[in-house]
């Protein structure tokens, strides 16, 4: 079995995003990381291979040259191969899904494990879009995976609780952080990863129409600070709650 894991490079989740004076998101000089949900997806894929249930884990990305370092990290964590489809253009989720679709047609994976959302655009589209383009079944927001006779039992987090779905392969699974705790790459594995194959393809070779279907008109920072009035004790706190008028 072969597993494909899409990887996106995003701004470090520990630092709130800010805008430059030109109104674009500040990225220069900022730390980046693999999208935390993708890191969980990769960990899940590597564990499946370590259990002998999969032969190969392929990490795939669409993005700039800087994505090479994210893919190297993915290789150090345990992916066997990496593929970067190089482009400078910021792409919409549908365009990204179309590119992964092409990669799937070439690579013929049995399973795609993806993050449920990327923490920058928070769109949560690529996984289900890819599933549709492939005509495959899907399970989203998965927090637990189990193998039963070559099928997957996926625990999906839904609004009112959880539900379990059974998937026959091929399928697309998108994962929540609760699925596992991703490992860190050890230094020897970082060294070893340098020798693992990482193929760089040019987006133009695919001949896919990735022209934007939406236009970003503006960005603005949201001021989320309210600067609490600190009250001295529980009695004053209760009084302050009552003064809001929400309780009577």
């Amino acid at each position: 079995m072969k597993i494909l894991v899409p990887i996106k490079r995003v701004l470090d989740h520990n630092v709130p995003a800010r805008l430059t004076p030109r109104g674009t998101v500040q990225t220069d000089g900022c730390n980046h990381e693999i999208n935390p949900f993708d890191a969980v997806a990769l960990e899940a894929a590597v564990r499946i291979r370590e259990r002998g249930l999969a032969r190969e884990v392929v990490a795939v990305s669409v993005g700039t040259d800087e994505f090479v370092s994210s893919l190297r990290t993915a290789l150090a964590v345990g992916a066997d191969r990496g593929i970067l489809v190089r482009t400078e253009a910021p792409l919409e989720p549908l365009a990204v899904a179309k590119i992964f679709h092409r990669l799937c047609l070439a690579e013929m994976p049995d399973l795609v494990i993806a993050g449920k959302q990327a923490i920058d655009d928070d769109a949560a589209q690529v996984g289900p879009m890819l599933a549709m383009l492939l005509g495959w079944a899907q399970a989203t927001n998965v927090s637990h995976l189990e193998w039963v006779d070559g099928q997957i039992d996926a625990m999906c987090e839904v609004d009112r609780g959880t539900r379990r779905l059974r998937l026959s392969l091929p399928a697309v699974v998108t994962v929540d952080l609760r699925l596992n705790e991703p490992r860190y790459a050890s230094l020897p594995n970082v060294m070893r990863a340098k020798k693992k194959p990482l193929e760089i393809k040019s987006l133009t070779d695919f001949g896919i129409d990735v022209s934007p279907k939406t236009e970003q008109i503006a960005l603005r920072e949201i001021d989320i600070c309210r600067r609490a009035t600190l009250v001295p004790d529980v009695d004053a706190f209760a009084a302050a709650l009552l003064a809001t008028g929400s309780l009577r």
């Binding site: 709130p16 995003a17 920058d120 928070d122 970003q216 008109i217 503006a218 603005r220 920072e221 989320i224």
Partner: peptide, 10 residues
């Protein structure tokens, strides 16, 4: 977007 730190008009 970005965990609610930026509002995007699209």
């Amino acid at each position: 977007i970005y965990a609610g730190s930026i509002m995007q008009t699209v």
